[in-house]
Amino acid sequence: MTRPSENSPGAAPDTGTALATTSPAATPSTTTPPAPPAPGRRTWLDTTAPGRALQVLGRAVATVWSNPKARAGLVILGVFVLMALLAPWLAPYDPHDDSFGRNEPGSAAHWLGTTGNGEDVLSQVIYGSRISLLVGLVAGGLSTVVAVVIGLSWGYLRGWGNDVVNFLVNLFLVMPGLPLMIIIAAYLQNGGLPMIILVVVITGWAWGARVLRSQTQSLRSRDFVTAAMFSGESAPRIIFREILPNMTSMIAGSFFGAATAAILSESGLSFLGLGDMATVSWGSMIFWAQNSMAILTGQWVLLFAPGLCIALLATAMTLVNFGVDGLSNPRLREGSGR
């Protein structure tokens, strides 16, 4: 039975995920053509689970990278991530250091000038990226997780629970986001960053859940889902092993969408003075600039620099979203069109 077959080099005997990329389908002539092991263009060799996860991730990044728009987005995103990670080395001064002259224009010492409190603007912009990225990734991630769990079970299961979830999601959808956020933030005053993240998650998951639910409903009527039932699979297993992987691109898209919204929300809340004003974020920078009437004093950079960063980061996320389409489609993924 376990005859040693003339395997392509990558076909490791265990955890056989090694794929010799043969040209798909289109072998109509005979009944069972044991397709000869066509020389694979690419072969992946792996034996361990983490190796497999890495390989999947690598393939995903490669897929996204192949789209020019997404590539631009990834580059911008990468720059911001580096900026956040290397902030202590990149920033010329401590962002809280207010020992400089006030409202100074740009100079060799302070490229973007100083704030009304005498802090270095460039340093603040650099450190501010940490907060924005952190909120974007954490809040975006959390609300995606909530959206996935609720959206998928909502789409797959039937019965009275469905109606309850339906009511809840619709409730969150019709409530206007920003006012709700302001009210919640006002109640949870001084909660700091976790509070902001919580607020963004509470108000941000409903859209994703709705979108994922409709996709789940369309997938659940596919034969392979019924077939999984016939294979004796449990409902959670069908939802998370059969349906979920087919929505990778949608979930990734939903994540980037949620992250963008989270970044904008955080800036919005900080700008309104509802965030933690002690931390330096792009939103709070604009808040303070507005407070000190930076426009009137001619220091438009104070408003412009953090604003531009917010816009750029949001744009980068949106651009990346263009490239995630190919993720769920193994045919696109291997670039073998049919």
């Binding site: 005859r3 076909a11 995920t17 990329t21 798909p24 045919r331």
Partner: peptide, 11 residues
């Protein structure tokens, strides 16, 4: 069989 076991449906 070994070879078919490792294939994805589109192949």
């Amino acid at each position: 069989v070994e070879q078919f076991a490792a294939k994805l449906p589109h192949q």
